[in-house]
């Protein structure tokens, strides 16, 4: 008994079974906020398998503060270059938003220089907005660069993706919206991110898009998300993972869809908050064509067999994860 019990425990500890996503098989998902730069090819594969057909990677803080302009330049270039290619390898259409994040807005010497190169990037193909911008500490510097970037977005006729602060969230969110209105932005072109039960009502009432980040421990859990949709419906609501270099889940969108289905939400409602609404909001950039979701898959197929650094000559495009043999 004792031994049996312990071996069962072993199994529970070591044999982690992937989440069952069979109930949502065949559905397509759009994750409008995920930092793929920080993720592995295994994540890309799992996302493609779970039905994610397209995503948006907002420019953000890399964890390690940047000390020079070229670090920003190379990062922006990677979002429209290397990362976009990496994503295409898995048949996932990659878009991005470009901006100076709030944390690094506090390095004013550098922030000034970054503002000068942003116009080089925001009009590039596949750039669907200015983001993620907004407040972290709510300092005067953050205020300044948030406003400057709102002006930039207005001029470029691009949507804005707003990061709302972790600390003093409610006031920070209100202030972000106030400033956007003050600068003459149409709330329908502004996506307010990282909402929760305390912020959602005002965001929707004022005509903005409300994005919810399903992120373990610190942001929303998806059971709470189900309740939000029950209470507020699906209009202007979208779900994302914001998966990054922290403990986060790049499958948060499909998992939330599976949970919604299990809890009895309609397929149409699920589709609105995990696919359609994000496209409607960010397609205002003129940069999203749903036909490309299919094209990227075709390129992917030929690309794989023509080879590249990730999937080099002769190697099978898919690794057999159940085998200890690596050939």
């Amino acid at each position: 008994m004792c031994c049996n019990h312990s071996s069962e425990k072993e199994t529970a500890d070591h044999n982690i079974v992937p989440a069952d996503l069979r109930s949502i098989r065949g559905m397509s998902f759009f994750d409008p906020h995920v930092h793929m730069t920080s993720r592995t090819t295994d994540d890309y594969q799992a996302m493609a398998d779970a039905g994610i057909v397209a995503l948006i990677e907002p420019a953000f803080w890399l964890g390690q503060p940047r000390t020079g302009l070229d670090s920003f330049r190379d990062y922006y270039s990677s979002l429209i270059g290397w990362e976009r290619f990496r994503s295409s390898q898995f048949g996932i259409k990659h878009y991005c938003t470009i901006g100076l994040n709030s944390r690094e807005a506090n390095n004013e010497r550098l922030a000034e220089q970054v503002m000068e190169i942003l116009p080089l990037f925001i009009n590039k193909e596949g750039v669907v907005g200015v983001g993620e911008i907004g407040f972290d500490d709510q300092t005067p510097a953050e205020d300044r660069y948030y406003r400057l970037q709102l002006e930039l977005a207005k001029e470029a006729e691009l949507p804005v993706q707003i990061h709302t602060p972790h600390r003093d969230k409610k006031k920070g969110t209100q202030r972000s919206m106030d400033i956007a209105i003050e600068h003459g932005l149409d709330p329908y072109r502004v996506i307010v991110d990282h909402n929760n039960e305390e912020t959602v009502k005002e965001v929707l009432d004022r005509g903005f898009w409300a994005a919810f980040t399903i992120y373990p421990f610190t942001k929303m859990g998806n059971e709470r998300m189900v309740e939000i949709v029950r209470q507020y419906g699906t209009e202007r609501i979208m779900v994302n993972s914001a998966a990054d270099w922290g403990i986060s889940d790049p499958l948060a969108v499909p998992k939330t869809a599976a949970l919604m289905k299990e809890r009895g939400l309609s397929d149409e409602d699920i589709r609105m908050v995990t696919y359609r609404n994000a496209i409607t909001a960010f397609a205002q950039s003129g940069q999203i064509d749903e036909a490309d979701f299919e094209t990227v898959k075709q390129i992917d197929q030929s690309g794989r067999f023509e080879g590249n650094s990730i999937l080099r000559g002769g190697q099978q495009p898919r690794i057999d994860k159940s085998s200890i043999i690596i050939s």
């Binding site: 270039s77 429209i80 270059g81 976009r84 290619f85 193909e125 596949g126």
Partner: peptide
Amino acid sequence: FSAAEMNEL
């Protein structure tokens, strides 16, 4: 070249 996206390259 230095600020090019994929298709521009």
